[in-house]
Design a protein around this nucleic acid. Sequence first.
DNA 1: GTCCGTCAGTGATCTAGTCACACAAGCACC
DNA 2: GGTGCTTGTGTGACTAGATCACTGACGGAC
Lengths: 223, 223
Amino acid sequence: MTAVVPTEDWINRFDGLSKLEPRLRDVLTTRSQVIRLPADTIIFGPGKSPDHLLLLLQGTVRVQQLAESGREVVLYRATAGESCVLTTACMLAYEDHAAEGVAETEVVAAAIPRGVFDDLVASSKEFRNFVFRAYSRRISDLFHVIEDIAFRRMDIRLAQKIIERADTGVLKATHAQLAAELGTAREVISRQLAEFQRRGWIAQSRGAVEILDCDGLRALSTS
Amino acid sequence: MTAVVPTEDWINRFDGLSKLEPRLRDVLTTRSQVIRLPADTIIFGPGKSPDHLLLLLQGTVRVQQLAESGREVVLYRATAGESCVLTTACMLAYEDHAAEGVAETEVVAAAIPRGVFDDLVASSKEFRNFVFRAYSRRISDLFHVIEDIAFRRMDIRLAQKIIERADTGVLKATHAQLAAELGTAREVISRQLAEFQRRGWIAQSRGAVEILDCDGLRALSTS
DNA sequence: GTCCGTCAGTGATCTAGTCACACAAGCACC
DNA sequence: GGTGCTTGTGTGACTAGATCACTGACGGAC
């Protein structure tokens, strides 16, 4: 972790924190460090519980569940302006859980030490609301994941994922990565994509999926 | 909701709250009500967000996820001595989620209003730790559910569930209820139970499963 | 060019979920 | 006691998804 001097008032980027009184803004900026993490840094994971709450200024963090079999599911992503608040839960976790947080891109974040977090929760209603709202959002995400895995069809979930994660009409990901994203097997993704291609909705190349007919995908994804 | 006068110092039953200073214990006992809910009361659910944090004194609350298709999964159970802390997240939820909390038995609980909850979180490190530890535990439960649904076989999960929920060697539940418990279809449960019966591990009767060979079940459930 | 690691395609097989039933056990009502 | 009715269970046929064991194809590194 390389320390970086905070150069601007990043607090305003966080929904709810902008209302913090000046005294507490000072606490946040002087007692937390802005850090920069290279892509693929493992932020927390089995056997590695975090000691800071991260407020993301740039980049995205992917939180995923690992199984012994080697299979994975992505639980959620935290992006700039959000906090990686479930790490606070991990801080106090009475058991190691199998979830892992990874910097998906290079990440710049304000790292709030445990003690400062505690002081802020104690002294600021705004900060408390910020924390609980962040929790709420993450828990909603988890509910969503459970609903998807338990009750939704793979083709629908895959179509959604492609739309959601294809920036410029192209999604750069291998079949194996998409499988890990959705918690399924690589072969399942291969077969589904072959079907999508057959229908003319996408074109495939090594490590990438290009959307040709977004309406087709969308029609499936909302059915 | 019928109000009941708190007759004893129930705070000690909650891990971590026993260390609360007397002033805060007073806050808890005087500003919260002990309530009694009949079995099957829906405590929170879609369109019904809770306005109190419940600390369970007696009974159990089942939290489950509902799908439009009518299928369900049980996410976790909160029992006496635990709090239904995810309700605090629901209190602030920016969206209605599809989870529902139901009193599985008659429930006696201390209901802490939103304002009191906030005061306590602000003024007590012990209470904060209590809340965050409770969150942590629930989130672990959710991770566990995700892992089960995504990666574990049904026969193993069913065997575990039978062992876990059969008090006196008998589990009173219909196939449909077990299916809702595990987030699968009734037929799947019927066929698995038929197989367990064929192997001599259980005996079945209408609405009940009797364990005959717990070792057999356990061997499967840990494989 | 050759080697090698990663990526994608495929058939066979098994597990799980869906659909459409049949039938049985308990209960109410006459 | 019989007649329905509701609820719980059994079953076959079929589709979806997961697993296994491969194959070949692509893109560097050398």
